[in-house]
Computed example of a mutant assay.
Amino acid sequence: MDFIGAYSPDHLKFLLQGFGVTLLVASLSIVLSFIIGGAIGTARYARIPVVSQVLAVGVETIRNLPLLLIIFFTFFALPDIGLKLPVTTAAIVALTIFESAMLSEIIRSGLNSVEKGQIEAARSSGLGYVQTIRYIVMPQALRRMVPPIVSQFISLLKDTSLAVVISLPELTHNAQIIYGQKDSYVIPMILILTLMYFTVNYMLSIIAGRLEVKKA
């Protein structure tokens, strides 16, 4: 094991560049999937005729597909229909599609967890349907949804490593390039990858835990 060679300044800089790509892809995917998943989850909760059923089929289909297949589709299949995406964009699109489906179920379940009696009381007091959702249902549901949503974001951050199959220059990809130079770099690279992923995900886990305590 060559820790000194593996952790040379150039190698560490290369790893940090990959980590930056990982955080960028994860951050953009989180924002986009939260917006799209929120819209889908709310639409399904509202049970809009036809739209709700179509969305349900789409969500269940995506949730039961491996993320790796979706990544392959966005990068290798879309060019066949005239839509060629840069590798970073393809990774973001794939992660957003998959995470939107997962988050939509979390959000729909959170909305459904609010007691029907509160909704009926709000409607009987004169609030409209949209007002009831906005002022009564959504605030309570959000508090309940935060911990599972944060947990899903943790999974998303780890899932960015799957984009190594399309040569996204993220953390795992760059580490592979480094330990491909010498066999003695393998264990040092695995250790530093473990530390970097663990640090970020553990911080997110702490946030989720504290939010869970506040919610209780």
Rank of each mutant, 00 (worst) to 15 (best):
G82S: 11
L32D: 02
Q118H: 05
S184A: 13
F19W: 13
E115R: 13
R47T: 01
V213F: 09
R47I: 00
D159K: 07
L83A: 12
L69A: 15
I133P: 01
Y197W: 06
T132G: 07
S155R: 11
K182S: 15
T42M: 13
Y129M: 14
M203L: 15
T22C: 01
L103V: 14
Y202M: 11
P139I: 09
D2S: 12
L69C: 10
A175G: 03
V57M: 08
A163D: 01
F98H: 14
Q53K: 13
Q17S: 09
D159T: 09
R210T: 10
M102S: 14
I4N: 14
D80F: 09
A122P: 06
A39P: 01
V51M: 02
A56N: 11
Y179M: 14
R134C: 04
A216M: 10
V200F: 15
V54G: 01
K116G: 02
V93S: 10
I166H: 03
I97S: 04
D10K: 12
S155G: 15
I62Y: 09
G18A: 05
V54K: 01
E120G: 05
F14N: 11
T74D: 07
L16T: 04
I30N: 02
L142K: 14
G82H: 09
R123I: 04
N201F: 08
Q118W: 02
A122F: 04
I119M: 07
I35Q: 02
I97Y: 03
L168I: 12
Y135G: 00
